[in-house]
């Protein structure tokens, strides 16, 4: 399938969305990064995308967290105390 990285309805490219999301503007000139930052502040479309992407990261993050069971903690600590 041909990849189709269509721009958003506000005409911002997906690459720029990711740039704004990460606050990472390396490789693009200062004028353009300022334009993007000020666009972001006023654009409902971009802010919705970003909220969605950040929400996705939150979902991934909280879904993957694993509790440390007490018995495992105890065993690990015991082996740590034997280290000296």
């Amino acid at each position: 399938m041909e990849i189709n990285n269509r721009p958003l309805s506000c005409n911002v490219s997906s690459e720029d969305v990711y740039r704004m999301l990460d606050g990472y503007f390396e490789g693009i000139d200062a004028t353009r990064s300022e334009t993007l930052s000020s666009h972001l502040k006023n654009c409902d479309c971009c802010s919705d995308v970003m909220q969605f992407q950040l929400g996705l990261r939150t979902v991934i993050g909280s879904g993957c967290r694993e509790e440390l069971p007490d018995d495992v903690r105890q065993r690990l600590l015991e082996s740590l105390h034997k280290l000296r």
Binding site: M1, I3, N4, N5, R6, S14, E15, V17, Y18, D48, V49, F52, Q53, L56
Partner: peptide
């Protein structure tokens, strides 16, 4: 890997 479109889920479920 490059076959997945940018903003894949957003474009489909948002």
């Amino acid at each position: 890997m490059d076959d997945v479109e940018d903003l894949y889920l957003y474009r489909r479920i948002r």
